[in-house]
């Protein structure tokens, strides 16, 4: 019985993922996300070039290294890696938004129930949605790679193995983000709720490390009273975010690349995988509990 179930699941996953990907590629949304990512990357590169032309010289990255977990979010050795990271963030946010609506939208519209009259179960449904997000992200990355290779040629900014490693990490980040989005989606019955949840968490995940790094950049002598407490509070929050936020898993890998540590790099890959698996299993569990009806 089990032997027969596997091919059906695989077929269902392939068919659903292909159909969803086609739908995504025929929508303008993904291209707007890519363009936004490239705009941010261009803005950073534009600033780098402007700064070099104005000052004559620029050292990249900057010296202050802000760190999370055992390594840190370090501005990478090549100027291309920082714009890539932010472009990847935007692509990943799009993936999370898309994933956070994946289950709740189908449930909200009532199409989920119809879908489950066929040879589709919760596992194949959630995995198909997940695979579709990863493939969509691969398309986004494809555009990014073309952009960065071209810009590297034009600007003479270095591209090296670190860049390739960042791309690999980015795929895993997409995995984490998609799993996180699916998890949020499985929690809510309404699209509106899942979008709100997505927005709240994304703002927290991005703003906490930024606020912490901003506070930590203030010279020690000027840190007194409330500012000192704020530093400590954001430090605690940042530690929490480090484990919950999918973005943090990309940062860990980026740190490993920066430090040239293979062990840390492999560890960051493993952590990302574990995070993805746990949230995907969680999504399936919650999906089963909530059922397919509105």
């Amino acid at each position: 019985m089990k032997k027969q179930q596997r091919p059906y699941r695989a077929i269902a996953i392939t068919a659903m993922a292909r159909r969803e990907l086609r739908s995504t590629l025929f929508n303008v949304g993904i291209y707007i996300a890519i363009a936004l990512g490239l705009c941010v990357a261009s803005f950073l590169l534009y600033n780098y070039v402007g700064s070099i032309q104005e000052n004559g010289v620029l050292v990249l990255p900057s010296s202050f290294t802000y760190t999370r977990y055992l390594g840190g979010t370090i501005p990478s050795p090549e100027p291309m890696q920082v714009p890539l990271k932010w472009a990847v963030y935007i692509g990943a946010i799009y993936i999370t938004l898309s994933a956070s609506m994946a289950i709740s939208r189908e449930r909200d519209q009532g199409t989920l129930e119809v879908l489950f009259y066929g040879p589709v179960d919760s596992v194949s449904f959630v995995i198909a949605k997940f695979v579709e997000q990863i493939l969509a992200f691969a398309v986004i990355l494809f555009f990014y790679v073309l952009y960065f290779v071209f810009m590297s040629r034009v600007s003479n900014f270095a591209l090296s193995m670190g860049f390739v490693k960042m791309l690999l990490l980015s795929l895993l980040l997409a995995g984490c983000m998609a799993a996180f989005g699916m998890f949020l989606s499985s929690l809510s019955r309404k699209v509106k709720t899942s979008v709100i949840l997505f927005l709240v968490f994304t703002i927290i995940f991005i703003s906490v490390p930024l606020v912490h790094s901003f506070l930590m950049a203030i010279p020690q002598d000027e840190v007194k009273g409330a500012l000192s407490i704020a530093r400590q509070t954001t430090s605690y929050l940042n530690t929490l975010v480090t484990w919950v936020s999918p973005f943090a898993y990309l940062d860990r890998g980026a740190t490993a690349i920066e430090l040239g540590s293979v062990a840390e790099f492999v560890k960051s890959l493993l952590f990302s995988l574990v995070y993805t698996i746990i949230l995907t299993i969680g999504s399936i569990g919650i999906f089963n509990r909530k059922g397919v009806r509105r």
Binding site: S63, T67, Y69, M216, V223, S228, Q232, S235
Partner: peptide, 8 residues
């Protein structure tokens, strides 16, 4: 304070 995970 708050610099437990910061390197410089």
């Amino acid at each position: 304070r708050g610099g437990e995970m910061v390197y410089f």
